[in-house]
Design a protein around this nucleic acid. Structure first.
Lengths: 203, 203
DNA sequence: AATAGGATAAACCAAATAGTTTAACCAAAA
DNA sequence: TTTTGGTTAAACTATTTGGTTTATCCTATT
């Protein structure tokens, strides 16, 4: 019954995603995952033999989702400034819908850096620079963006987008005292972030 | 023998800090901590009755250390621009010496937000704005910094400083392929970050 | 000399947990 | 009708782990 099959496997995968996102690899319990998928432990192990295999499947899917959001920057036909605005709008909106991803990824990356290296092996980092230079040569000159400054700029952009979600628990506690909500702060951030970065880059 | 006493308690505390920083609350093992302190488990429990109490002690110390680094911004007698430069230089240098703190704090905050709230209760967030406005009224106007924009600006500054360390495992993997080291990137960042923020804020 | 308390080794306990096994159920396919 | 394979409940194993207990040792203080 290949139909029902997929349903169950998917239910397991979704339940596992949910539990791992909440508790991390160490804190997650196989029984929890089975419960959340409303199956029993035997069946859980029947589909994913070990906790490790299950976790790896979940982690790779999540990491893929998170990083794939960076791709349009290299494909969309927009000016550099438009791309920056586009990126923050899209990426932050994505994180709004998947707010637990950043903390999860950052935590598991530090627990097991090898896992990350394996995923990154599929990406040719150096090629990205060539593509960027090809598409935006004039703008790069105008903004004074060099190959050397790329690491600083890119990590700054990532930081501005990702950090609020990674530090969500902390920020919510602070914002509570200032009478502002995390949600409105995030909504504002989509344009604040773009303005801020463009301003900083403009000569 | 109060002397030796303190030595042991400190050895335990340091060992616990080390293990918790590496493995987190869930991943840490009491036996590991005892081993690293070169004492036995009985004595470990003799000093800190439970894993939870030990963890809380470690967490509060670490959180205190991390946040205390934000304080000089309100005490040093410098212009706003100088303060921004001062902050990034000092804070990033501190993180260079304690690179595992950010990932640890962010992770544990999300696992147990209540713990953070308790610590933040000792800080009067709203007062900080008054102090800032008192000390830098003219500059705030000049830079177009309002009470409303403070959350965006402050979290951006924190993000730029903290994120590289929280994402260290990821960045190291990427930088490897670009033939640059995390250390040189961080060294650069002390001034890049300040320049970037000041540029973004200047009208 | 006696005592108190830090320190140890080692065995122990109870609970949690990953993973396995077994026997039985049921529906769809052969 | 038989077989196959997804599915279940439940008991079970082996190991890990937080925490306790006990008996013993050592040393500084009384």
């Amino acid at each position: 019954m290949g139909e029902n099959d997929k349903l169950t496997e998917e239910r397991i995968f979704d339940a596992a995603t949910d539990v791992f996102l909440d508790k991390g690899m160490d804190g997650a319990r196989m029984q929890d995952i089975a419960d959340r998928a409303t199956i029993n432990k035997a069946l859980l192990h029947y589909y994913y033999r070990t906790k490790d295999k299950l976790f790896n499947a979940v982690f790779e899917k999540i990491a893929g989702k998170l990083f794939s959001k960076f791709a349009p920057v290299f494909s969309e036909n927009l000016s550099l400034e438009e791309k920056i605005r586009f990126f923050f709008r899209e990426h932050i909106t994505f994180l709004q819908q998947n707010p637990r991803l950043p903390a999860f990824i950052l935590n598991e990356i530090n627990r097991n850096p090898a896992r990350m290296r394996k995923i990154l092996n599929n990406i040719d980092i150096n090629k990205l620079w060539s593509v960027l230079e090809e598409q935006h040569h004039d703008e790069l000159v105008r903004y004074n963006i060099t190959k050397e400054s790329i690491p600083q700029i890119m990590t700054t952009i990532a930081a501005i987008s990702v950090f609020p979600f990674a530090a969500r628990g902390l920020l919510e506690a602070i914002f509570e005292k200032m009478n502002i909500t995390f949600d409105s702060y995030i909504e504002e951030r989509k344009v604040f972030a773009a303005d801020f970065v463009i301003k900083a880059l403009t000569k």
